[in-house]
Design a protein around this nucleic acid. Structure first.
Length: 1281
RNA sequence: GGGCGAGUAGCUCAGUUGGCUAGAGCGUUCGCCUUACACGCGAAAUGUCGUGGGUUCGAGUCCCUCCUCGCCUACCA
């Protein structure tokens, strides 16, 4: 192997290391190991990036996080699957390709549309161009992910339009269609006039726009003797009690004024609405208005949707009431609210626009037939039409000779208007025929809400969507987590926090509790008594899951239950009961008095499965480790709770006594999804509250074509018999489904008339045969030209990538042998990692679909029949409840982690238009993938977005950020520390040998082992809670601060002839590489290659997780140092060393001692003894040549340590006494300041009386210490004087 | 308008149930090419924790007021 270079150069290693992983097939997941029970599953699905563009820094962050989780779990022995893939992004990709073609001057989509019309398969030709584009970008994205080091299972890469995903889309559409959850509706959609397609609500972006309110006058008319155009005069209104009518001349024609921001839509008005409570309503009842220029006579209707103007009772301050005139123009075909009014009053809908949003009388406005005016507006764009309408109104009056124009006034107004996220033009509410998915159905929306863990749900949501369904007798979709097999390795060491605080606020949680015997041990009989006491309260105040009574301590896992008042039993009360119950009995038998137990330690089990299993394992192994038995099952005082107990929660996981009480039972597939950070659960819930049915059709070519055939506007069809035979055969054998527009049953009678076929929709379960197509075409049917919203296939991602609905077909088409094992092994997945903006749509839709399609019986029984789509856009209130035969499937992931958003230094989004984007590949080139990953990981917290100051490198024209230096520096440090350590091993012999007993090691070694142990715990906790900054900080501090700054510096003089120390260095470095690997895979793997051949001597308690293979670091086991390696004695002692060294260094720095100069420390007594025992730590770290008890001769400097004064000499040839005095005086001031604060606190009677005793005690000790320091420093100062 | 979040050192951010003298990295200052690392080592300086009140023996942390910023959402009368 080559000697190591002076600095780490990532480009020399990254591609080679990557190839090594690929050659080792290291990222390949084996689902059968999960199904055989050989390993627990851990699975992450990549949120498939759009094939429209290369990845940006946000993707880099997201994928780094996923890779960290995946790599850590792989090393922890889980069978891990990270499924990669890309998304076809229908509208975005189609637009991109079109733009590209135009730029190149090649035929673009308009030309292909022409071809298509000419019968030349323009569609097919265009789609194949998009396909080429997709191939190009898919390759680019894949390359980027690989450069970042993403350890995806690349053999399983999917694309949302590949044949496996397509099969899922077709099946899903068919099932939903058959179940009445997909319907056709003529409604207002968000129309993008440039792309000329419908958009879903989430594809519309709101933008602030400076507009105006236009106040338009519509003349009032009434019908007399068949003439509907007779003017109504103010005089007439006045007699009918119209307020203020007498302000106008009696004989003039009256008008009503409407306010609008969109005057150009007035041609589509079909009514004017007024609130029935409006004092003017009675006067105009039954009257009409005449639309100026157009001449249409439309009714005045009454609807309480209309806001009253302030003048007539509207609420002052309400923006609408302030602006309103009380009369509202109603344009059902161009405004969603007007649409609803139109529905209520059965108004005409007149669409006045062409698909490009120009004014047209060819798309629903039969102007000439009606004899209406307004031809001047035809062909005008929306903007032109607005100007023209305003101009025309302004030029006219209500009637000849009237005062004032039809345009009463214009008021500037700022408001936000929906814009297409793709073409950025204002979205037009446009009447059109589209397909909808009825997501408001309880089976979809309701189950998406119920998927959320009750702890994160709001009261309102729990009421609206109560947890449903009886207890679930069969599987839950989770792997059974009955306690793991005894043979599995000892789990992660536990971190137990002492908590004395209000756990009664944390009702319904499961706890891990430990309490110890004050002195002595328990006899066997006494252990029985404790067990009895525990179970005495089981099912009464708590559910006991597992107890193990050791001779000197007790562990238990339990869940407090609700008590009558609605709260939960406080854990303190429970413990008190159990402890006093047993203490009394045992003391009585022993004839003893006094306390038996110490305080308990307890830790809330915040998370379900992993932590539960970890602690469960820990408890089972406890007697084995204490050598009380050989196998976990053999210890007589380990008892599980009664398995048959009703109160046990799902899967024996979190017994979750929920608010209706435990008696109701818990639906095992509800309540499993957790958001991290938890606050996003609320966003998720609220989004569902406002949900409307989802428009799933798009007028595009790039996407999954809608598998529905229909027929309209063609000649009547003669051969009904043959056709209906064919149709009924298809219906009977289930390969197609037919629905009528009005959702009536499809009968033979229905088919009697060829014209009725126009109301028929036929959906095929799989691709229709040529024969089918022939029959359909003869009958005049054509396939729907539209495609599905891209999110429809994205929503199926957890299913489609795993081979649903037909894994054996997926196996055949992909050649992947174990495809059939994927879904059972890995769905539900472990976590979805995504950005904020995706919470709503994607998480929700995946949850809906996963739960729907994996339900025990998604169709038919158990659900109430669903009526055809309601005309209202809102949920119709259907409450179909699942039954036992019809259990919804699991949520597709257990956790949803929402990561931070990356912004530039000014807090703006990174975007192309601002030019503030940073390309991950540029950073990888300049700093290396590991540096980028570490920096991103270190910067991402749960509360703040990531601000990344962007700098432009003028020489390359590329954007970068100085932040990435942090990661690069760390890599370089790691590289050099390795070089140094490897150099050490050339001098210090490493050889295998008997396991090392850590107690026999030197202070510094025991300290280092303790630090690694603690850091490992920190890392485990951080990763479990998705605290990536904490993870980064933990390894940074461990490696740089503890290992490099102190450990390596300390062992320099001793390691050469201390083989045990060499073994510790070897093991510790190994552990550090492993802990760092998830975030910095390339460099750690590179270094591991150099360390791996060196023999490793076992240190007792320092073990590594068992994994599938160990030849590469990425497959090697995670460190699992035993808790016993935490060495408080060593930590405390080394803390004294550090403190002494720091103090001496400070003196050296202030006295300007040359770094190389070796000084003399004058210390006697106990400190001298300590220093001798620690030798040569102080000497090495503080640059001390000799330690002597003698008083210094000549010049010396003094310092205070632990309340005593010591001196240093040989600092320099001549000392600066002034500097020395300054230093001491400053120190004295600091001490005095601290003392004042502490004295103040102690002299406050409230503090001494009310603060916890141990704090007061601590404060007193502090004061005592400070007083000693003060005296010592004072003495030194006096001597100087 | 409604919701969520943020405001802590010059910059970017931590700060678990209220409790040792509020921390880290970068930057700054001083001294160092000291047996790997100047992408480094040693030392130092830097804070009215947005504002004003309240609860408490004790508040960066809990409650209320106000100010500033960000995101989401509603609003085309």
């Amino acid at each position: 192997m080559q000697p190591m270079s002076k600095a780490y150069n990532p480009s020399e290693h990254e591609s080679r290391v990557w190839q090594k992983w690929i050659d080792a097939n290291a990222f390949h997941a084996d689902p059968d190991r999960v199904l055989n029970g050989d390993a627990r599953p851990y699975c992450v699905l990549i949120p498939p990036p759009n094939v429209t563009a290369a990845l940006h820094l946000g993707h880099a962050l997201n994928n780094s996080i996923q890779d960290i989780l995946i790599r850590a779990h792989r090393m922890k022995g889980y069978e891990t699957l990270w499924m990669p893939g890309t998304d076809h992004a229908g509208i975005a990709t189609q637009t991109m390709v079109d733009k590209r073609l135009k730029e190149r001057g090649e035929p673009a989509i308009a030309d292909y549309k022409q071809k298509e019309l000419a019968g030349e398969d323009g569609r097919g030709q265009f789609v194949s161009l998009v396909q080429d584009f997709k191939d190009e970008f898919e390759a680019r994205i894949t390359d980027q992910l690989m450069k970042m080091g993403c350890s995806c299972d690349w053999d399983r890469q999917r694309f949302t339009m590949d044949d496996i995903c397509a099969r899922a889309v077709r099946e899903a559409f068919f099932q939903l269609f058959k179940d009445g959850l997909i319907y056709r509706g003529k409604r207002l959609v968000n129309w993008d006039p440039v792309s000329q397609t419908a958009l879903a609500d989430d594809e519309v972006e709101m933008e602030e726009v400076d507009g105006h309110f236009y106040y338009l006058r519509y003349p009032l008319v009434k019908e007399i003797e068949g003439d509907p155009t007779v003017p109504v005069t103010w005089g007439e209104l006045a007699t009918r009690g119209y307020p203020d009518a007498d302000n106008h001349p009696d004989d003039e024609q009256a008008w009503v004024t409407v306010a609008t921001t969109r005057p150009e839509t007035y041609m589509g008005d079909t009514a004017v609405a007024v609130n029935p409570k409006d004092p003017r309503a009675g006067a105009v009842r039954g009257m009409h208005v005449m639309l100026p220029i157009v001449g249409r006579i439309i009714p005045i209707i009454e609807d309480d949707y209309v806001v009253l103007p302030v003048k007539y009772g509207g609420e002052p301050g309400d923006a609408k009431a302030e602006m309103s005139t009380g009369f509202l123009k109603v344009t059902p075909a161009h405004d969603p609210n007007d649409y609803m009014i139109g529905q209520r009053h059965d108004l005409e809908m007149i669409n006045i626009m062409a698909p490009d949003a120009s004014i047209s009388d060819q798309h629903g406005w039969d102007r000439e037939e009606r004899g209406e005016g307004g031809h001047v507006f035809l062909g005008k764009s929306r903007e032109e039409a607005r100007e023209l309408v305003v101009k025309e109104f302004n030029a006219r009056t209500v009637a000849e000779g009237s005062e004032g124009s039809l345009l009463e006034k214009m008021v500037p107004h700022k408001h936000s208007v929906g814009h297409s996220y793709r073409s950025h033009v204002p979205v037009e509410p446009y009447l059109s025929d589209q397909w909808y998915c009825k997501v408001t159905d309880d089976r979809l929306r309701g189950n998406a809400q119920r998927a959320l863990t009750p702890e994160q749900r709001t009261e309102a949501s729990l009421q609206a969507w109560p947890e449903s369904a009886p207890t679930c007798p069969r599987g839950t979709g989770f792997q059974p987590v009955s306690p793991p097999s005894p043979s599995s390795s000892i789990p992660d060491a536990l971190t137990i926090h002492q908590r004395h605080l209000p756990h009664w606020q944390l009702g319904g949680s499961t706890y891990f509790v430990t309490f110890r015997v004050e002195t002595g041990t328990l006899s066997e009989k006494e252990r029985d008594q404790v067990l009895d006491a525990c179970f005495h309260f089981d099912g009464d105040r708590a559910t006991i899951r597992l107890v193990t009574v050791m001779p000197d301590h007790v562990h238990m896992i339990l869940t407090p239950l609700e008590h009558e008042s609605g709260g939960y039993w406080p854990l303190q009360d429970l413990m008190h009961s159990i402890k006093s119950f047993t203490a009394n009995a045992i003391n009585r038998d022993r004839g003893a008095t006094g306390p038996l137990w110490q305080d308990e330690y307890f830790d809330r089990l915040l998370r379900g499965q992993d932590e539960f299993v970890e602690k469960w394992n820990y408890m089972l192994m406890n007697p084995v480790k204490a050598e009380l038995c050989e196998q976990p099952g053999e210890y007589a005082w380990t008892k599980r709770g009664e398995p048959g107990q009703r109160r046990r929660g799902r899967d024996g996981l979190e017994a979750r006594p929920t608010r209706g009480g435990v008696e109701k039972g818990v639906c095992s597939t509800d309540g499993t999804m957790h958001f991290y950070p938890a606050r996003y659960a609320k966003t998720y819930e609220t989004w569902h509250d406002n949900l409307r049915d989802w428009c799933i059709s798009r007028q595009l070519w790039w996407g999954h074509r809608i598998p529905v055939w229909s027929r309209s506007g063609v000649a009547p069809f003669e051969q009904f018999d043959q056709f209906s035979d064919w149709l009924f055969d298809g219906l009977t054998d289930g390969r197609l489904h037919a629905r009528r527009r009005d959702d009536e049953e499809v009968t033979r009678e229905f088919l009697q008339s060829g014209e009725q076929l126009d109301d028929l929709f036929i959906c095929f379960k799989s691709e229709p045969t040529l024969e089918d197509i022939r029959i359909l075409e003869e009958a005049g049917f054509t396939q729907d030209p539209d495609v599905l919203d891209t999110w429809f296939s994205s929503a199926l991602w957890p299913l489609s990538t795993m081979g649903w609905p037909d894994a054996s077909a997926a196996k055949d088409s992909s050649g992947i042998e174990d495809f059939e094992s994927l879904l059972p092994a890995f769905n539900p997945t472990s976590v979805l990692t995504t950005a904020r903006e995706i919470i709503t749509l994607w998480v929700s839709r995946m949850t809906m679909f996963n739960r729907y399609f994996l339900s025990t019986n998604p169709r038919g029984t158990g659900f109430q029949p669903v009526t055809p789509p309601p005309s209202s856009l809102q949920d119709d209130g259907l409450e179909a409840r699942p039954t036992e035969e019809n259990m919804p499937g699991p949520a597709p992931f257990k956790d949803v982690f929402i990561h931070a958003m990356i912004q530039d230094g000014e807090g703006r989004k990174m975007s192309k238009s601002l030019g503030n984007g940073v390309d991950p590949l540029d950073i990888i080139d300049s700093h290396g993938a590991d540096a980028m990953r570490f920096t991103l990981c270190q910067m991402t917290t749960q509360t703040q977005d990531v601000r990344m100051p962007v700098e432009r490198d003028e020489s390359t024209g590329k954007n970068t950020s100085p932040k990435f230096d942090l990661g690069r520096n760390l890599c370089n440090k790691l590289w050099n520390a390795s070089k140094f350590a490897l150099g050490m091993f050339e001098k210090a012999e490493l050889k295998p040998g008997l396991p090392i007993n850590p107690e026999e090691l030197t202070l510094i070694d025991r300290w280092m082992l303790s630090r690694v142990t603690e850091a490992t715990n920190k890392v485990n906790t951080a990763l479990r809670n998705y605290m990536f900054k904490d993870y980064a900080d933990a390894i940074y501090d461990l490696f740089w601060r503890d290992f490099c700054d102190w450990y390596l510096e300390s062992i320099k003089p001793t390691i050469g002839d201390n083989p045990e120390q060499a073994a510790v260095l070897r093991t510790v470095f190994d552990a550090i590489l492993r802990l760092m690997h998830p975030v910095m895979p390339f460099i750690t793997e590179t270094l591991f290659e150099r360390f791996e051949p060196l023999p490793m001597r076992e240190i007792e308690g320092f073990t590594f997780e068992q994994t599938k293979a160990t030849d590469t670091l990425c497959l090697s086991g995670w460190p699992t140092p035993a808790d016993e390696l935490r060495d408080e004695v060593a930590e405390e002692a080394y803390e004294r060393v550090r403190s002494l060294v720091t103090t001496i260094r400070e003196v050296r720095a202030t006295a300007q001692v040359k770094p190389k100069r070796q000084i003399v420390l004058h210390a006697g007594g106990e400190l001298a003894a300590d220093i001798a025992r620690w030798s040569p730590l102080i000497e090495t770290l503080a640059g001390v040549e000799t330690v002597t008890a003698d008083e210094p001769e000549g010049q010396s400097a003094s310092f205070t340590f632990e309340g005593a004064e010591y001196r240093l000499s040989n600092l320099a040839d001549a000392l600066d006494a002034g500097a020395e005095r300054d230093r001491l005086e400053k120190e004295l001031a600091t001490i005095e300041k601290s003392m004042a604060g502490i004295k103040g606190r102690l002299s406050n009677p409230g503090y001494v009386d009310k603060a916890p005793a141990h704090l007061v005690e601590q404060t007193r000790n502090q004061l005592a210490q400070l007083e000693k320091d003060h005296a010592a420093t004072k003495a030194a100062l006096d001597k100087l004087a």
